[in-house]
């Protein structure tokens, strides 16, 4: 349990996660109000990373449920282990026959077996999937439901039930209540609109691409081997790319990958040659690479010119609301 918001920020910073005021406040509130957080934002701004850092900071086990099209209850909640049940039946055959030895009629025998039925439908044969595990594990946990926008609408509805009561019903066993309230974090890349009901139940957090300063401190923290000057150049370059009209913008994780590559290549500065070799780490579409090269080509003398704060000509700035 956190005592204050600054404590949240420090704890996350210790896990190498730089939290803005906004993030720290929401995490603190989620902790206090026992509410799930729904994190939205472009891919690769550290949504999943937040869950990991948070779990480490509060020393809880991170249980992750990755969503995809076609995910259903058996994969998310629980499944009976049929194979194991069959195996046990085989092994226990002798014991069964002794139990049934003195029965006279078939009905009698069936009744006798029915009495033992509980053995086969017990927790022993229940294979807990992430959701059930988060509810039943002995220590409090942190449940990460990743990319909920990829799951089907029916799964979303089912998830609502679990998230509002923190209990699930297994027909053969009855209702299983959460031993501890798990902390819950859902992420979404906003590829589709989530249902209003789900949003209503969550605290909402929108994480956008970081500012130059924030991104620089992230790079410095995660890739300490990169020289400060080069780190600054690199971050400014990435921010510049985000100002262009691209199909896919470079994410923070790609900035980090690129920074690591620069260290690996022992680059002294970001010149044309280095860019030629490494631009594909940042940009994943051939069209984007071409467009970036074309625009960058206009800056004779390479990246050095990009430090200035002149108005950036005809380059549109990154605008997250574009097109809404």
């Amino acid at each position: 349990m956190f005592e204050s918001i600054s404590q949240v920020r420090d704890a996350l910073a210790k896990q190498q996660y730089i939290a803005t005021d906004e993030i720290a406040t929401v995490v603190y509130l989620a902790d206090k109000l026992q509410k799930p957080i729904l994190v939205e934002g472009p891919a690769g701004v550290g949504k999943t990373e937040l869950a990991k850092a948070w779990a480490c900071a509060v020393q809880r086990e991170l249980i992750r449920l990755q969503c995809y099209e076609g995910l259903d209850e058996t994969k998310a909640l629980y499944e009976w282990e049929y194979a194991k049940q069959m195996l046990y039946t085989q092994l226990l055959r002798d014991k069964l026959s002794t139990i049934l030895q003195d029965t006279r009629s078939l009905a009698d025998a069936a009744d006798r077996v029915a009495q033992e039925e509980d053995v086969f439908f017990s927790q022993r044969f229940l294979l807990p999937r992430p959701l059930l595990r988060a509810l039943t594990c002995d220590d409090p946990s942190l449940l990460l439901i990743d990319e909920i926008d990829r799951a089907d609408a029916e799964f979303e509805a089912f998830l609502l039930e679990v998230l509002s009561d923190f209990q699930v019903t297994v027909p053969e066993l009855g209702t299983i209540r959460a031993k501890h309230m798990p902390l819950v974090l859902l992420t979404s890349n906003n590829t589709r609109e989530l249902s209003e009901a789900l949003k209503r139940r969550c605290l909402y957090l929108h994480i956008d691409y970081p500012t130059v300063q924030a991104e620089l401190s992230i790079v410095r923290m995660r890739v300490p081997d990169l020289s400060p000057q080069l780190a600054k150049q690199a971050v400014e370059f990435v921010q510049r790319l985000r100002g262009m009209e691209l199909k896919k913008y470079p994410s923070v994780s790609e900035t980090l990958d690129w920074a690591r590559a620069l260290v690996m290549l022992n680059a002294k500065s970001i010149d044309e040659k280095v860019l030629e070799n490494t631009l594909t780490i940042l940009l994943k579409y051939e069209q984007d690479v071409q467009r970036a090269k074309r625009v960058l080509g206009e800056f004779k003398g390479g990246i050095g010119d990009m430090d200035d704060d002149e108005p950036r000509g005809n380059l549109p700035r990154y605008n997250p609301r574009r097109g809404r």
Partner: peptide, 17 residues
């Protein structure tokens, strides 16, 4: 003030626009 504001925003505003 900032925390108060964040608290209101996270509970009331569920859509980026």
């Amino acid at each position: 003030r900032n925390w108060f504001k964040s608290a209101l925003r996270t509970t009331l505003i569920k859509e980026e626009p």
